[in-house]
């Protein structure tokens, strides 16, 4: 019997298993994976099983991703200004900026 994954991350010597963040694809096919919460597990296989038991007991879950929390790189709130605000005033990225000739179906 082979496993899907025994990917591991540095565990802490305090005896507590590391944290894994859980992402679920629920509902319609092709919908994105959404963050559901986290679980503690010693490795990927157990993380997957725990995630399934904790977060997928109800409802239609199609797929689960578990990711060691330590490998996630996240933006910080102080980045918000430089990272995100400029996007708001770049109107040329939005379809409404462009006029199509009357009567022509663009799509």
């Amino acid at each position: 019997m082979t496993t899907t994954s025994t990917k591991v991350v540095g565990s802490n010597p305090g005896g507590e298993w590391p944290v894994w963040e859980v992402f679920l694809q629920e509902g319609e096919e092709g919908s994105p994976h959404k963050h559901a919460g986290s679980v503690h597990a010693p490795d990927g296989e157990i993380a997957l099983q725990n995630a399934r038991d904790v977060y997928a007991r109800r409802g239609k879950v199609r797929s689960i991703w578990v990711v060691p929390a330590v490998v996630i790189t996240a933006s910080s709130p102080s980045d918000a200004g430089p990272f995100f605000d400029p996007a708001q005033d770049k109107v040329y990225r939005h379809p409404q900026f462009y006029k199509a000739p009357r009567g022509v179906k663009v799509f």
Partner: peptide, 11 residues
């Protein structure tokens, strides 16, 4: 022995 396992065995 662990909360997660409690849940798993319960399942």
């Amino acid at each position: 022995p662990i909360l997660e396992e409690d849940l798993a065995i319960g399942n």
